[in-house]
Design a protein around this nucleic acid. Sequence first.
DNA 1: TCTAAACGGGGAAACCGTCCCCGCTTATTT
DNA 2: AAATAAGCGGGGACGGTTTCCCCGTTTAGA
Lengths: 214, 214
Amino acid sequence: MQTAASVSHKASRPRADALRNRERIVTAAREMFVEFGADVPFDEVARRAGVGNATVYRNFPDREALVREVVCSVMDRTSEAAEQALAETGDAFEALERFAHTAAAERISALCPMLSSAFDRHHPDLEAARVRVDTLVARIMDRARAAGQLRDDVGSGDLLVGIAQLSRPPAGTGCLSADRFVHRHLQLFLDGMRAPAPSSLPGAAVTVEDLRAS
Amino acid sequence: MQTAASVSHKASRPRADALRNRERIVTAAREMFVEFGADVPFDEVARRAGVGNATVYRNFPDREALVREVVCSVMDRTSEAAEQALAETGDAFEALERFAHTAAAERISALCPMLSSAFDRHHPDLEAARVRVDTLVARIMDRARAAGQLRDDVGSGDLLVGIAQLSRPPAGTGCLSADRFVHRHLQLFLDGMRAPAPSSLPGAAVTVEDLRAS
DNA sequence: TCTAAACGGGGAAACCGTCCCCGCTTATTT
DNA sequence: AAATAAGCGGGGACGGTTTCCCCGTTTAGA
């Protein structure tokens, strides 16, 4: 980090405040997608982000672009949480639990729109992020399974969908009060994943790949 | 059932097809509330129900009336499922499981709007239905608990919210394909409720009563 | 200090949900 | 089977909301 000239080419670099604003918009959109669904008015997103509405329209040509950026951002955060969990050297199942609770708090449910029909699930950015998440989560689960702590018949998709569904706010407006319940129910779900399995599950283990099938 | 005059007073009885239509509207609305939330256009509900939009407006003066009827209807169905489960004389936990899977299939998540802020949670009809569900579900759970099969730290609210959240379609349009996953994940959740508890849950057991608190 | 990129608020235009009106259908009665 | 009135359904106007552009002003970067 030099005093100046730390960045090579300045021609294509956007202004610093522009980047900051873009980030604030994505954050606001992520929160609002989770609470109100993927069709919140742009003006509302702008208001929560503390910017003018024009700034939103300037950064994102259409709704899909914003949604995609939000989904990618959430997947990246999830991947980071997964990497952190993998770095933990202690109990394998405990690492899995830590990851799950962190992902729930990170509002992973914002990536539900990914399953929506009116959404290009094959965009390169998404594919890359998806593979990354899937791989990391599968690694965490494999480790717990190898330790004999995780049942055999569950896949990364089962875990991620469970987290997403259980961490969604019920439906009404800003019902964040449920956050107190979320971790209870997620913990129950995780306990159900422990080995030995007391029941057999219908269907086969689900991967993230399976989720994007129609 | 006599040939005629089987009903005492004919003055206030609506026509048979009117009743049938009303029922079809409630059914359609239930499905659509689950899929798209409680603010689907009335015209869409009418279309799915196979009736004209005027019929919807004639039967339900405002949206709240329709929502209330749907919620009550779902709670009644849930109560029926609970009574049926209680009648089963076999394994107590198996009865609990049967109830849960039935409730999920009955689209119990349609009663999410009950938690919405813009909804009169203190309407007499709702109170009655709520108490009935809560009592029956608690009875099922108590029985399983008495048999040493259900952990101590879960309440009827935990079960109902878990079912509701896990059985909700992710978000997109008519994503009923997820139904194949629902019962997997619900089963995992149920397995997590088995005794002995492998973990301790944050917070306290939740009743249905707790849910209507802001 | 200078310049151009970025910002923000206001407002027009398009879209969508609500709800009424009226000619037609059909369940029910005698 | 005919009479009768309750119920039905589609079209369309109204009102509210969202989208998106325009342009005067601000501010980062050199």
